[in-house]
Amino acid sequence: MVALMIVIAFVGVWQLYTELSGLDAFVLPPPTEVVTSLYDDRGLLLENFLVTGGEMLLGLLVALLLGIALTVLLHLSPPARRGLYPLLVGTQVVPIVLIAPLLVAWFGFGLLPKLGIVAVVCFFPIVVPTLDALRRIDPDRIKLMRTLGATRWQVLRFAEAPSALPGLFTGTRLAVAIAAIAAVLAEYSGSERGLGRLTLQSIPQLETARAYAAIVVLMTFTLLLYAGLAALERLLLPWAAAPERTP
């Protein structure tokens, strides 16, 4: 509620500023023009949104599968953890802004380099909180499972994996928040379609309102994705909301 009021206030100030300052609409379009563009350009926006939204969702899916597989591997195998973890951190210090155009040069203008870029940016925030959740499990819980006769795999299935789910959700929410940035960055580096591409095109065409409209569409999608995940988490993990109580 408060957030909504802040947004309304922000848009109001923006509108007022554009009207009072006498700035040209192609420098800073007033919100009303952005809304007009959202309507007038809806076909164009939708077409490009489907491309970018697809890149984000598929990229997140790849990141999620890769992230879970890596987390399980790192958790189960201390040698893998020692060997791979530094390399994973390494992937995050690669300046992706610089690598992106090179990937596009290598893999072409299609979907593949976009998926790669989104996945590389998004898997790390999935791995870290999930792995942390696995490591924070009370050792007594593992001992208990072992005396109940559980194999290593059963300990993972019955005790560890569910304990790590809240971490996985946290990580996925973080990944969603940056997936849009990654997808747009990938499109900037070379593409024929997509909201990032559309924004980049609209600026030299002095269609600034359309560029803002594209940004609004992307933000709305990301927020909905984030809210959807949060709702799914409340639905699937009601126990995680209540702090774990000990007698």
Binding site: D138, D140, R141, K143, L144, T147, L148, F158, A159, P162, L237, W239, A240, A242, E244, T246, P247
Partner: peptide
């Protein structure tokens, strides 16, 4: 064969 009842019940919250 022994089974442990650990300190704090360690019930699985889910």
């Amino acid at each position: 064969r022994a089974v442990l009842m650990p300190q704090r019940d360690q019930l699985l919250p889910w």
